[in-house]
Amino acid sequence: MAQRRIPSRIFLVGPMGAGKTTIGRELASRLGFRFVDSDSEIERKTGVSIPWIFDIEGEQGFRQREAAVIDQLTQQEHLVLATGGGAVTTPSNRDALSARGIVIYLFTPVQVQLQRTRHDTNRPLLQSSNPRQRLEELMQQRDPLYRQIADLVIESSSGRARGVAKRIEATLEKE
């Protein structure tokens, strides 16, 4: 039987609502890897929610915490890491992600992001009077950054997480 050639560090990037956490959990389970969501890890380490960090420290304070967590996590083996949607806005995060593992961009159109995030109050950047416009602005800013560091781009707007994870696994085995 052929040896699997799956990399030991898989990093998921993409916008809010792309399914990074759900697909990441499924992919990690399929591969026998540990799964970590960088936002959940920040909350675990600080003992407070992401919105609280944004309120008290602003986005810059949050991004500093995020960079420290991503630097630490990207050095761990047998890991599937789901990053926050804005992680790619910090150059050190892009460098760490692209240098230390395989980066998979879960592309999801704004309309799908809007449907998936419409009831979520835990996303500080969406607490505006026009979430669609905000998601479009974020996509315009971040899509080039996601693509810049992505080893693979996987469309994640349709199908179940299990199916998307299977597609990722099959693609990685071919690489």
Results as ranks from 00 to 15, higher is better:
residue 18 A to Y: 09
residue 66 E to L: 13
residue 86 G to C: 06
residue 45 K to M: 07
residue 31 L to T: 01
residue 82 A to I: 08
residue 86 G to V: 04
residue 55 D to Y: 00
residue 88 V to N: 08
residue 43 E to R: 11
residue 117 T to E: 12
residue 23 I to P: 08
residue 79 L to K: 09
residue 33 F to E: 00
residue 104 I to M: 15
residue 30 R to Q: 12
residue 96 A to R: 10
residue 123 R to H: 11
residue 38 S to W: 08
residue 61 G to K: 03
residue 38 S to C: 15
residue 40 S to C: 15
residue 85 G to F: 12
residue 90 T to I: 11
residue 62 F to S: 04
residue 60 Q to N: 07
residue 31 L to K: 00
residue 11 F to G: 08
residue 14 G to A: 12
residue 133 Q to L: 15
residue 115 Q to R: 14
residue 101 G to P: 04
residue 18 A to V: 01
residue 51 P to M: 03
residue 74 T to S: 15
residue 11 F to E: 13
residue 24 G to E: 05
residue 92 S to E: 08
residue 102 I to F: 07
residue 91 P to W: 06
residue 87 A to N: 06
residue 20 K to M: 12
residue 34 R to Q: 10
residue 127 Q to Y: 11
residue 127 Q to N: 15
residue 37 D to C: 11
residue 9 R to V: 04
residue 119 H to P: 03
residue 61 G to C: 01
residue 8 S to C: 00
residue 126 L to Q: 08
residue 17 G to I: 14
residue 100 R to N: 09
residue 35 F to I: 02
residue 76 Q to G: 01
residue 78 H to E: 15
residue 84 G to N: 15
residue 16 M to E: 00
residue 56 I to Q: 07
residue 80 V to F: 01
residue 123 R to A: 13
residue 56 I to C: 02
residue 10 I to W: 02
residue 83 T to Q: 10
residue 69 V to E: 00
residue 32 G to M: 05
residue 90 T to K: 13
residue 46 T to E: 15
residue 30 R to G: 03
residue 67 A to G: 10
residue 98 S to R: 12
residue 77 E to C: 13
residue 97 L to Q: 09
residue 25 R to E: 07
residue 63 R to A: 04
residue 119 H to S: 07
residue 112 V to N: 05
residue 101 G to C: 06
residue 72 Q to E: 14
residue 19 G to C: 12
residue 18 A to I: 08
residue 87 A to Y: 04
residue 122 N to W: 04
residue 45 K to P: 07
residue 104 I to H: 12
residue 31 L to H: 00
residue 44 R to Q: 14
